[in-house]
């Protein structure tokens, strides 16, 4: 199959992403990409974490007389269909989104790395079995799997972390496995083995630092993927459950009322999702370009 010569993070997502964002890195430079990403990410994160300091309104308080009110000096982003402050809900939703997405990305990161190392360094039969399982999971887009599992559970926030984490590791696992296989024949690995180093020791002390750059930028991409997946699930009503706010949920509420033109319920939430995905992708690409230049 053509194209398999370049190892990709994910069958298509990775290759397209690398193509698009390496173009950005070309125009902005490694430093520019990294800076742009970091600035965006700082903005998004501080909006979610520091927001409550500036916006004292409760995301759950219902202002009966002011339901469905466009942006004004009192409600900076207007109110929703039952009179809750949209800005407060946007901030709270962002906090929830980050609080679920980041742990989920970390979980996926750990599972993917362990799985990849097991396949790459373990016995050949284990590699064969694990790769078949991987193919099976990759045969379905993660979103389809997510919809399927989320609908079985109606998950809590904790379950959502597990769910997102456990459906998004295969891409990383394949990458780690390929890297491990590429590195396991190196002299320093043989030397360590001669000295009695076990497989775990080799993976942890010798291989992990070597493939760290690959892991770091893919880990960053994972965060963006999780934010998108979580928002999509919440949008479908299968993720974070109301009354708790989430960006996907806010968009859904806006869509349900779309006939009365509530742009303030739709645009801010969508823009936040967009910004956070762009931020993680820029940072990831920046790190990738830097590590490629270092090599």
């Amino acid at each position: 199959m053509s194209g398999t010569t370049t190892p990709s993070f994910r069958p298509i997502g990775g290759r397209v992403r690398r193509a698009i964002f390496s173009g950005v890195a070309e125009s902005l430079g490694e430093r520019g990409t990294l800076t742009a990403g970091t600035v965006l990410a700082t903005l998004v994160v501080s909006f979610c974490l520091l927001g409550p300091i500036f916006c004292r309104a409760s995301p759950y308080a219902i202002h009966v007389g002011d339901a469905y009110y466009p942006p004004s000096s009192q409600f900076f982003l207007g109110t929703d269909q039952i009179g809750r402050d949209e800005l407060a809900r946007l901030i709270a939703g962002g906090y929830t989104t980050l609080a679920v997405s980041i742990p989920a990305a970390i979980l996926a990161f750990i599972v993917g790395t362990v799985f990849g190392f097991s396949a790459g360094l373990g016995p050949i039969w284990l590699d064969k079995v694990l790769m078949r399982v991987l193919d099976a999971v990759l045969a379905l887009p993660a979103l389809i799997l997510l919809i399927f599992f989320a609908s079985l559970l109606t998950p809590s926030s904790f379950q959502l972390i597990l769910l997102l984490g456990l459906t998004s590791w295969p891409g990383l696992a394949r990458l780690v496995r390929n890297e491990a296989i590429a590195q396991r024949g190196r002299d320093f690995v043989h030397a360590s083995r001669q000295c009695g180093g076990g497989t775990f020791h080799i993976a942890w002390t010798h291989l992990l630092p070597v493939i760290a750059p690959v892991l770091v930028f893919n880990g960053t991409f994972l965060v963006g993927d999780q934010i998108l997946a979580l928002s999509a699930l919440s949008f479908l009503g299968l993720g974070i459950q109301p009354p708790e706010a989430s960006w996907g949920g806010l968009l859904q509420a806006g869509l349900n009322l779309v006939v009365v033109d509530p742009w303030w319920m739709i645009v801010p939430a969508g823009v936040m999702i967009f910004l956070s995905i762009a931020a993680t992708n820029l940072i990831g690409q920046g790190i990738l370009t830097r590590s490629e230049e270092a090599v």
Partner: peptide, 12 residues
């Protein structure tokens, strides 16, 4: 457009 979620574009 790449970083834009489908459901956001659709809703817009």
């Amino acid at each position: 457009f790449y970083a834009m979620p489908t459901f956001f574009v659709g809703t817009l």
